[in-house]
Amino acid sequence: MLPGLLHVHHIAIICSDYAASKHFYTEVLGLQIVREVYRAERQSYKLDLALNGQYLIELFSFPAPPPRPSRPEAAGLRHLAFAVADLDAAVARLEALGVTYEPIRVDEFTGRRFTFFFDPDQLPLELYEVPGPL
């Protein structure tokens, strides 16, 4: 193990439509805004987001970012997974907000249920059901 390695600090995501992504991550997923800044010299927004008080995502906007291929399975980050206690309730909320998700599957190794959906830039996101308190 790398000495001093503690945990994942944050995940950085570059979006193509800042308003749409900000809405998605705050209104659809319900992440809390920690800080939002506009960096004029980079023509870039940086939105710091938390989940249950834990710093989690840095959402960036940049002028005309190149698209990142994700299908077929491209090299690099495959997806970002969120643990949920009740997958049925979570997908019902996605449905109510008009967010399309894949059919629920069962992990062949753990027996846990999961599904995938996508952010406004088609970044694959996963909801993975875990037992009891998180």
Rank of each mutant, 00 (worst) to 15 (best):
V37C: 04
V37H: 03
V37Y: 02
Y38A: 13
Y38H: 10
Y38M: 11
R39G: 00
A40W: 01
A40I: 12
E41F: 04
R42T: 08
R42Y: 09
R42W: 10
R42A: 11
Q43T: 10
Y45I: 07
Y45W: 14
Y45L: 03
K46T: 15
L47R: 03
L47C: 05
D48F: 11
D48H: 13
D48L: 14
L49M: 06
A50H: 03
L51D: 00
L51T: 00
L51W: 07
L51C: 10
N52I: 08
N52S: 14
G53W: 11
Q54R: 12
Q54Y: 10
Y55M: 02
Y55N: 03
L56G: 07
L56P: 01
I57H: 00
I57G: 02
I57T: 00
I57P: 02
I57F: 04
E58H: 12
L59R: 04
L59W: 04
L59A: 09
F60N: 03
F60D: 05
S61M: 09
F62V: 14
P63T: 07
P63N: 11
A64P: 00
A64S: 12
P65W: 13
P65I: 15
P65H: 08
P65L: 15
P66V: 14
P66K: 10
P66H: 05
P67V: 13
P67G: 05
P67A: 11
R68M: 12
P69C: 05
P69H: 01
S70P: 00
S70D: 00
S70F: 12
R71D: 05
R71S: 06
R71M: 11
R71H: 02
R71A: 15
P72Y: 02
P72N: 08
P72A: 07
P72R: 08
P72D: 13
E73G: 14
A74K: 06
A74E: 10
A74D: 09
A75K: 05
A75I: 15
G76Q: 07
L77P: 00
R78G: 12
R78A: 14
R78V: 09
R78K: 12
H79Q: 07
H79T: 06
H79A: 06
L80A: 01
L80K: 00
A81L: 06
